[in-house]
Nucleic acid binder design. Structure first.
Lengths: 193, 193
DNA sequence: TCCTGTTGACTGACCAGTCAGTGAGTGGAA
DNA sequence: TTCCACTCACTGACTGGTCAGTCAACAGGA
């Protein structure tokens, strides 16, 4: 641990300010439409300073993604025992995923918008969706073996769960109790009797 | 109808070529990262010509959206009688929606990528998802009244159906029979017995 | 001859990234 | 504690390059 002085403290804070402002502006206007001058103005600094902290605009984007990565929180969320009942676990995962995404909807919007054209962002998004759906699929498979769930292709409800919740947070915030209703529909369907 | 001559025919075709090349490049590289010179090069013309057919780059984007609008096809797809059984209708809608989106995945990717930062695109996307989900929700409500479906919030399966299928076409093409499996899950759930 | 599709040089604005310079904070020497 | 050499966060003018949009001129069909 390097010794902290007033100067290093302020430097750390400045770095954070730049990352925060970048996330906000990138999500609002898009990566390419945001200029380094915009970011500097938003933090009340000269635009040359950005290059004191980051090598390039791309490097700044990478720092934003690293700082607010969804993946670690997603992993914690999905570390569930395959012995616990699906009714309980699916609700937990749906509500938890929704909370994680809801905390930083700007980041989700940025990632979805940039991923078709930016390989770095695309890989970050792919890691989240692929790992998330894979772990959830494995869990569902275990519950089929345990006899709680009928025999079916578990990738289907896994994809539906993930994307329905992602879609919820892409739009304007609304819809209460969506996650538990969604889990109920996936478990028991909508057909009468 | 204006009389067609060799010249007007060629002009119509040129306009189409420009729109097609724009869709491809916008989806590949993003709207802002695509230059008018790129589009001209892709059609083998001088970049000044683009401004003979379109007022601006934004106007060109609007023309792309108008040409390949999903909405009319979506409306045809959702014009179903509320008396027909859900098992049949949901499959039809799921498969049909997937076909419509699958015919032009570039457009879907373009629209999703640009909608957070471009109001014109955002409105186009919102019209599709909102109208689609609203009509589907209405239909499901009718089937609840008819006693085929149990009492539930029909916006939930409507959202899940729409976004699971949209998500399928955002990624690389794979997954067979996903639509019918998805409808089966939504109708009967995944719980055993 | 008129009209119109087409060309490509040109303009002005914008922008990522550079760099020489400034001044406040730091820490070691006396 | 005082002094001062040094570090480094910070500034803003500048550069090289890019790009949307303009326009005068051309060519060939109607």
């Amino acid at each position: 641990m390097v010794r902290q002085t007033a100067r290093t403290l302020q430097a750390d804070q400045r770095r954070s300010e730049l990352i925060d402002a970048s996330l906000r502006l990138f999500a609002e206007r898009g990566f390419r439409a945001t200029t380094i001058a915009d970011i500097a103005a938003a933090t009340g600094t000269a635009h040359g300073l950005v290059y004191h902290y980051f090598d390039s605009k791309d490097d700044l984007l990478a720092a934003v993604l690293e700082r607010y990565a969804f993946l670690p929180r997603l992993r914690a969320l999905l570390a569930v025992s395959p012995d616990r009942p699906a009714a309980e676990v699916l609700s937990e995962i749906a509500v938890g995923l929704s909370e994680v995404l809801g905390e930083r909807p700007e980041l989700l919007r940025l990632v979805v918008a940039e991923s078709p054209t930016n390989p770095i962002v695309a890989r970050a998004l792919a890691r989240v969706t692929e790992e998330g759906q894979a772990v959830l699929t494995e869990y569902l498979r275990a519950r089929i073996v345990a006899g709680e769930l009928r025999i079916h292709d578990p990738t289907v409800p896994a994809r539906a769960l993930f994307w329905a919740i992602i879609a919820k947070h892409l739009g304007p915030a609304d819809v209460d109790a969506f996650e538990t209703d969604l889990v109920a529909v996936l478990l028991d369907g909508i057909r009468a009797d």
